[in-house]
Simulated scan of single mutants.
Amino acid sequence: MTDHTRTDAAASHAARQKLLDQLGGTKGMVCSAIPVAAFVAANAALRRLPLAIGIALAVAVLIAVWRMARGEAFTAAAGGVFGVAAAGGVAAWVGSAGGFFLIGIWASCAGAVLLAVSLLARRPLTGLLWNTLHGNRHPWREDGPSRLAHDVATATLTVLFAARFGVQLWLYENDSTGWLALAKVGMGVPLLALALLVVFWAFRRSTKRLVERR
């Protein structure tokens, strides 16, 4: 195995591990869901949007403090606080509890459009990412099986983001805040983790064909 091959394999493994760490696993999913649940419950019980936003933000701060006390980095632990603050700001601006979810809804739309455009341009985004991680040294688009794998991986992510956007926008327009919260959690990390299995398969297939054969 050459030095370049060892470096490429290490880069792939490090990138996969970093992405999994950022998702946070079950703990990350629970920590991100608790402020959302607190917001929905407070809004339903109190019928006062500013107070519900304040409660959600306070819960997010408490979770961040707990995570930092357990040794997590500030940026990782406090990310949820900034997210809740931004979501609460939008909800206050539009004057609707459903507004708490608007950033996520339109972020899903933007993600779906970006991924779809990369497919139409015959430059699937996962393939561009894989090649970037490997120093842009490999002709992955000229290798049919590798390009097909990244077409499948990018299409999987496109369907996921488009489904998030469609379902959650429909719930938002129907003022179904409780169901919207469930959709946000259920279509968040769990489905993304499944989609990333396809992405990692595409990464591995490209690595085997273009890196490990060298």
Rank of each mutant, 00 (worst) to 15 (best):
Ala183Met: 13
Leu57Pro: 00
Trp201Ala: 13
Ala38Phe: 03
Asn174His: 15
Gly80Asn: 01
Ala155Phe: 05
Thr156His: 03
Arg204Phe: 01
Leu133Gly: 08
Gly178Asn: 03
Leu128Ser: 09
Trp66Arg: 14
Arg67Pro: 04
Gln17Tyr: 11
Arg147His: 12
Gln17Gly: 03
His13Trp: 12
Ser96His: 13
Leu114Ser: 09
Ser96Arg: 15
Leu51Cys: 04
Asn43His: 13
Ala56Met: 06
Gly25Ala: 12
Ser12Pro: 00
Ala45Tyr: 07
Gly24Leu: 06
Arg70Phe: 04
Arg137Pro: 03
Arg67Ile: 07
Leu115Asp: 02
Gly79Gln: 05
Gly71Ala: 12
Val113Ala: 02
Gly166Ile: 08
Arg137Leu: 12
Val152Tyr: 11
Val211Gln: 00
Ala38Val: 12
Met68His: 07
Val94Trp: 05
Ala107Cys: 06
Val198Asp: 06
Ala92Lys: 09
Ala56Thr: 03
Gly79Pro: 07
Ser96Lys: 14
Leu62Thr: 01
Ala92Asp: 05
Ser12Arg: 11
Arg213Gly: 04
Leu23Ile: 06
Asn131Met: 10
Phe203Gln: 01
Leu128Asn: 08
Arg6Phe: 03
Leu51Thr: 14
His13Lys: 14
Gly144Trp: 08
Ile55Pro: 00
Lys208Met: 11
Val94Thr: 14
Phe100Leu: 05
Leu119Thr: 03
Cys109Gln: 06
Ala202Tyr: 06
Lys184Asn: 12
Arg6Asn: 11
Arg164Lys: 13
Met68Pro: 05
Val94Gly: 05
Met1Gly: 13
Phe101Tyr: 15
Asp3Met: 04
Ala42Arg: 00
Ile103Asn: 07
Val40Phe: 04
Ala149Pro: 02
Ile53Glu: 00
Ser32Ile: 02
Trp170Asp: 10
Ala86Glu: 06
Ala42Glu: 02
Val40Ala: 08
Gly83Asp: 03
His4Met: 08
Gly88Trp: 00
Val40Leu: 07
Arg67Phe: 02
Ala116Gly: 14
Trp93Ser: 13
Glu72Val: 02
Ala44Val: 10
Val90Gln: 01
Ala37Trp: 13
Leu194Lys: 07
Ile53Val: 15
Leu169Phe: 04
Ala37Ser: 14
Gly135Ser: 09
Trp106Gln: 00
Gly95Ile: 11
Leu133Glu: 08
Arg123His: 13
Val189Gly: 00
Trp201Tyr: 15
Thr158Cys: 15
Leu49Lys: 02
Ala183Arg: 01
Leu171Ala: 11
Leu115Tyr: 11
Leu19Gln: 10
Ala78Ser: 13
Ala11Arg: 14
Met1Ser: 13
Val36Leu: 14
Gly28Cys: 13
Ala38Thr: 03
Thr177Met: 08
Arg123Pro: 01
Ser206Gly: 12
Leu197Arg: 12
Thr207Ala: 04
Thr156Val: 12
Phe39Lys: 02
Ala162Asn: 09
Met68Phe: 07
Trp170Met: 08
Leu157Cys: 13
Val167Arg: 01
Leu102Ile: 06
Leu129Gly: 01
Ala44Gly: 08
Ala116Gln: 06
Ala97Glu: 06
Met29Glu: 03
Arg6Leu: 12
Arg137Gly: 12
Gly71Gln: 14
Ala112Ile: 11
Gly166Trp: 01
Trp93Thr: 14
Leu114Val: 12
Leu120Ala: 15
Thr7Cys: 07
Lys27Ile: 05
Asp8Ser: 12
Phe74Gly: 00
